[in-house]
Write a protein that binds this DNA or RNA. Structure first.
Lengths: 291, 291
DNA sequence: GTCAGTTACGTGTTTCGTAAGTATT
DNA sequence: AATACTTACGAAACACGTAACTGAC
């Protein structure tokens, strides 16, 4: 059992195999042939003195040790990648700060935040990176973004966050829905799981399932499917305001947990630019002094 | 500018140079000669398309990009090490859970916590790892420990924590101190920096400075120096109770922030054993039902 | 002249791919 | 027979150390 130093190559190889649970596919993904991959994993197991993979008759499976190495190794690789990307940005001739936002998930505040940040004294150029459903935390962890606007709840591991805005949640239903003309409904009316007042996790999980199942990539697709009567969904009011559609009705849902928009950044960030952008997003509106 | 993949060797080399700010010493520390080190760093800079080190007449210094890569690269290396160590422990024939504790910093609760944990159904053997002054977070981040008992404030980056116990802070002064027989004193009386009621950081920083300056490694040394009249120090009451010394007096300090002992663990830990140990440490005492 | 960092060059190790081997369906 | 993982072997790439080079004190 050698020391704890590991080459990132070995870790990348292992993660690929552990994710695919198949040497050939993993080798493909890595752009190498299966032979060096097999040897590398065996060497890694020998170095660590631990069996990582169970090669049984019915394919490859993870041992407990392998499961741990997959989980923790993945985040170590993310961290290394993040280190490189952030260093590259810090060393660029015109350093930029990257803000990740899911399209239409800014509660209409993006412009105001950017303007407020730009008004501060040493303000770096901000690149807005649009991303998919729950990609923001991943982009932060991989160093592809420095800050993100993201709706709660999200995986806070390694991240810090401050709330930016709270707004009511409304339900999107087909115009043909029995309650479409009521203007309001309860979660139970809509067949959505009941949750405690402060627990959005249930509703969110429900929506994530739908998103996964139908391979939805953006809001327009989601709303189109709602329009077709496939299901109903919950969205922040600001999203509803931005997407009026003839075939859709939006209902108030008094018992739905409110939508909380937060600004998140890597916990270990020491960047003053990030801090300034966070301040711009969270500071209360400056009081309007009378003339 | 190549992709963001980096070999951990390159990262280790860079961190060594960035910490030493000197190629020869860094090469020494790494156990290689200066030549491959110089080449490796230049290759890394070329790969990344960024200058990391400023080689000027008066030695080596970090560029902004280098500073970022040092900070983030260090934690990426820690994460990789942690992944390996935790996987090794998970794969061991008799998996153990490692609890890091600074000697005498358990508020006398260690035995009770261990007993309560051991009473749970699937309880793993617990290895108590004694460590130095503020080593616990580092041990957690490097995977050398799974859980830690640590006094606040500490660097929470990447860690989660729950409070375990709060106890009054007392001052240790030489028996010859003018206030030794008063039994109590204020921070101002003792010449310690004033801090807000909820801010221990000032006092803690003051103590850390002293610890660093005198190279103190354990409590006995610290108290011996206090006894010699070199300075005064603040300790939790439980520590005072455990170290009665003839040459020392302990004074109540009503305006000192209380000492908060917390149990901390890596944020991404999915280990049920860790969760059970945390529960054992934080759960309220079971109510004593009357007969 | 010495100290610190870099470049030049020859050597040894590591990693690769192709191809053959073994086992399961 | 086909698929999936492993072992065997020769070739290419990589990292190393010694030694020579450059510039600053």
């Amino acid at each position: 059992m050698t020391g704890p130093t590991i080459e990132s190559r070995a870790l990348r190889y292992f993660v690929a195999v552990a994710e695919e649970l198949n040497f050939s596919r993993a080798a493909d993904r890595l752009g190498i042939s299966a032979s060096p991959l097999s040897r590398a994993i065996r060497a890694l197991e020998a170095d660590m003195g631990v069996t990582l993979l169970e090669r049984s008759t019915h394919g490859v499976s993870l041992t407990p040790a392998g499961a741990v190495l997959l989980e923790e190794g993945r985040s170590a690789l993310d961290a290394a990648q993040a280190a490189v990307r952030r260093a590259q940005r810090a060393g660029a001739s015109t350093p930029q700060i990257v803000l990740a936002v899911k399209a239409d998930s800014d509660a209409g505040l993006l412009d105001a935040i950017l303007a407020r940040y730009a008004a501060q004294d040493p303000a770096l150029p901000v690149t807005v990176r649009l991303c998919g459903w729950a990609e923001q935390p991943r982009l932060l962890r991989r160093g592809e973004a420095d800050v993100a606007l993201v709706h709660e709840p999200f995986d806070r591991t390694g991240l810090d966050a401050e709330p930016v805005a709270v707004e009511p949640t409304v339900a999107a239903v087909p115009a043909t829905h029995p309650l479409a003309h009521e203007g309001r409904a309860t979660l139970a009316d809509l067949g959505l799981p009941m949750t405690g007042p402060s627990d959005l996790a249930g509703v969110r999980r429900h929506q994530d399932n739908l998103v996964d199942r139908h391979g939805i990539r953006d809001l327009a697709q989601l709303l189109a499917l709602v329009e077709l009567g496939r299901f109903v969904t919950l969205v922040p009011r600001s999203v509803a305001d931005r997407y009026p559609r003839r075939g859709l009705a939006y209902l108030d849902v008094p018992d739905a947990p409110p939508a909380v928009l937060a600004i998140a950044w890597p916990q270990q960030s020491r960047s003053t630019a990030v801090a300034a952008l966070v301040r711009a997003a969270t500071e209360p509106e400056p009081a309007q002094h009378a003339l």
